[in-house]
């Protein structure tokens, strides 16, 4: 272990005389000495969220997706503002069955003779409702359980990890199919039934993401510093750990919102989701499937609406991921 001193200093090494003696000094006026570690106070103070927002504002992907989402939400809240035609089956006239576009009916008619445009507009609400409320439910359950497991660790974490594994073995659609054929869910299906079932099978993913994010933050020095200031363990979780874990959770929640909308329409399309009496894009696509070859338009338009909505949420999540990237934050 004791270092050998004989080979260390080159200057005592007679084999290597310093051969060059040139001593260069740069002009001090060209290389002025600056105050060590001066605070740069030219720019306005910027929080992390402020910085993320600044980046986001310049991203076309974000602007497009945010605009589309605003439109979709507006349509789902005030459908009557976008279409005055009654799209329900009672108002449809079989005489119009599979008719093409006509005045006041820009997208033509379904096989039932309903106005396609009106159905697309009025079908928006169920998709948005399912997506939004499933996400809220999943965030509440998965977020709380994941945060507790990640922060406190121990047996809670172990139990949750096993439960998580079990739910992962049952994919969302598969689980929902099994649930949907239960006697208690077969009748009286509403949008809320679907929300419930999607939450039951959707929360593990958010729990896993939250757990990972919390674990990454919980050992940070600023959490230890807060604890040694006298902040309680729970206080440190709420004040420091959670705010710093939010970014990845927000990203995944945004993308999940899109996937839940897909799940709703897929289940409705399979005929085990929303009952046919509820207007939804999935139901319309299913209804239009039979006449696909003769009249593809009633299938195409709700499909386009569905795709654009889902795509908007996924694009928004992608843009958020870029803006909130934890690696970029460390500088």
């Amino acid at each position: 272990m004791t270092p050998d001193n004989t080979t260390t200093a080159r200057h005592s090494d007679s084999r290597r005389p310093a051969r060059r003696t040139e001593h260069f000094v740069a002009d001090v006026s060209e290389t002025p000495l600056q105050v060590t570690d001066r605070v740069k106070d030219e720019a306005a103070p910027l929080s992390l969220w402020g910085e993320a927002w600044k980046n986001l504002r310049k991203q076309p992907l974000f602007l497009i997706s945010a605009f589309l989402i605003l439109v979709v939400v507006a349509v789902s809240v005030f459908p009557g503002f976008f279409s005055q035609i009654d799209p329900t089956s009672e108002a449809c006239q079989l005489a119009n069955s599979d008719a093409g576009p006509a005045a006041g009916h820009p997208l033509g008619f379904t096989q039932q003779g309903c106005d396609v445009y009106a159905r697309v507009i009025f079908g928006t609400r169920s998709s948005v409702t399912v997506g939004l409320f499933t996400t809220i439910g999943v965030l509440l359950i998965g977020g709380i359980l994941g945060a507790v497991a990640g922060y406190y660790g121990g047996w809670i974490d172990s139990v949750l990890a096993r439960i998580n594994d079990i739910f992962f073995a049952l994919p969302l659609i598969l689980g929902a199919i099994v649930m949907m054929q239960l006697p208690m869910f077969r009748t009286n299906k509403t949008v809320w039934t679907l929300v419930l079932i999607l939450v039951i099978f959707g929360w593990p993913q958010i729990a896993r993401i939250t757990r990972g994010a919390v674990i990454e933050v919980r050992n940070a020095d600023f959490v230890t510093a807060a604890r040694s200031l006298g902040v309680s363990k729970f206080g440190a979780l709420m004040r420091h750990v959670m705010p710093n874990s939010l970014a990845p959770i927000i990203v995944v929640a945004t993308i999940s919102l899109g996937t839940f909308i897909v799940a709703e329409s897929t289940l409705s399309f399979l005929g085990i989701g929303l009952p046919p009496s509820v207007m939804s894009w999935g139901n319309d696509i299913q209804a239009a499937q039979a006449s696909l070859r003769s009249n593809p338009m009633p299938l195409l338009y709700p499909a386009i609406a569905l795709s654009i909505t889902v795509l908007s949420f996924i694009m928004l999540g992608d843009a958020l991921r870029d803006a909130l990237d934890p690696k970029a934050r460390k500088r």
Binding site: G258, T266, F269, L292, P296, L306, S307, L311
Partner: peptide, 22 residues
């Protein structure tokens, strides 16, 4: 790739079935 991920599989299915198949 975002577009592909964003479009539900049954929409993609019908689209390809209709264009390529039919």
């Amino acid at each position: 790739s975002l577009v592909v991920i964003g479009i539900p599989i049954f929409v993609l299915g019908f689209l390809l079935q209709f264009t390529i198949g039919v």
